[in-house]
Design a binder for these strands. Sequence first.
DNA 1: CAGTGGTCTAGACCACGGC
DNA 2: CCGTGGTCTAGACCACTGG
Lengths: 235, 235
Amino acid sequence: MTKYQMIADAIQQFIEEKQLKTNDQLPIMTDLMAHFDVSKSTIIKAFEVLEIKGIIYQRRGSGSFVRAPKRPYYINLAHQSGTGKDLQNFSLSQRVIGVTMIQATKEIAENLLLDEGDSVFRVKRVTSIQGLKAVYETSYYNASAVPYLDEDIAQQSIFAYIKSEYQLEHAFSDSYFVLEESSELIAELLELNTGDLVMKYEEIFYSNDGVAFDYSISYYHPKAVRFYSGGVPKS
Amino acid sequence: MTKYQMIADAIQQFIEEKQLKTNDQLPIMTDLMAHFDVSKSTIIKAFEVLEIKGIIYQRRGSGSFVRAPKRPYYINLAHQSGTGKDLQNFSLSQRVIGVTMIQATKEIAENLLLDEGDSVFRVKRVTSIQGLKAVYETSYYNASAVPYLDEDIAQQSIFAYIKSEYQLEHAFSDSYFVLEESSELIAELLELNTGDLVMKYEEIFYSNDGVAFDYSISYYHPKAVRFYSGGVPKS
DNA sequence: CAGTGGTCTAGACCACGGC
DNA sequence: CCGTGGTCTAGACCACTGG
């Protein structure tokens, strides 16, 4: 853990403990430098972390201030870490439908930057939130990056498995979403009528060496769609 | 324009001109320091900009590399600048339905951090994308921050007006979205059937002094929903 | 004009990757 | 072991806010 991360955490805790409200001013940088016995750049880095998290904002010439709290129960699009983790605040259960090795279709190949026909693992899962069937997800794992997968692993965290077994860590990702009419299969799995609108959410996960190792297509039940995006201060 | 911004732009242009592809390596920092005649921190800052934009990724010990191109025609949730600007790549037309001063309801007051009954300007707009009615937006402007608005101004860019007239600049914002069944009014305006699902997209815009000056509720036609989110490297 | 955050420097030292 | 990016420092100077 870096100094600036520890200081960011300390300041965040300070805000909570002192129960600071929207637009309350934080201590100025020179005071924080003295208090934590670090240089100015380290405080700046710590503030940057909090700014990106949407917790504070800064004004040259005036000071640093607390931002308004966010609505609860919304999934933050900035914390991408696999579908599962985003939803951990809820009481959810996951059912793995199957893990199979298949040949990449054109669509899969394009998104994983592979050639058509290359081997990929397909993992299908249904996730329920508080009893309601909420997400139907199909993931494709590049078999040359992830040599092995089975149902037992998929039942746990695939990302954790990949990391410990193959030192393959999720470094960044692209996400796309559109609204789409549900097919017969999706309607059945999400307990909807064929043709009802669902949110199609596609994610491509890249490891730290730039390999697209996971292409995931999730269909969300309309009632499960509650997203938040923000804390993005600069253009 | 800061040095690091100019360098970031220069590197981005370099990537385009040299037609660098996914995972191609960029020059190392020492070379860039010499080339631009700046210190290391300035190069780091420039790279940080490009990393947040989702254009490059970095690996300690190896180098900096180009990221895969994104799908076109998707609205990037990271570039929040009012509904209008996000869509400027498309051939769109906007119709202002009305500008009225009203008293804040409980919902408006909560989102703009006001008291119920405080004055706000309500602006209603319908935006069409390539002929299709795409977005129905209702915005509420805090009248104590934005003392005057009318239809002529709403026809142009309200944000530009506010900035030039009141030195009130959009500094950061919160966005929320859910799927909702359309009311009779919304269905009519978006040429749908009552009860059809639409995306409800709420945005709260804050100025640089932390005032929530605009609360906006947009209903998107299902076919107009095409969003992208990504380029978010760190947790 | 005093007080705030923001940029930039030159350089030490650290952490990780890969040969 | 060397080459890469990442953290951190001490300090100069700049840009904006607000009385």
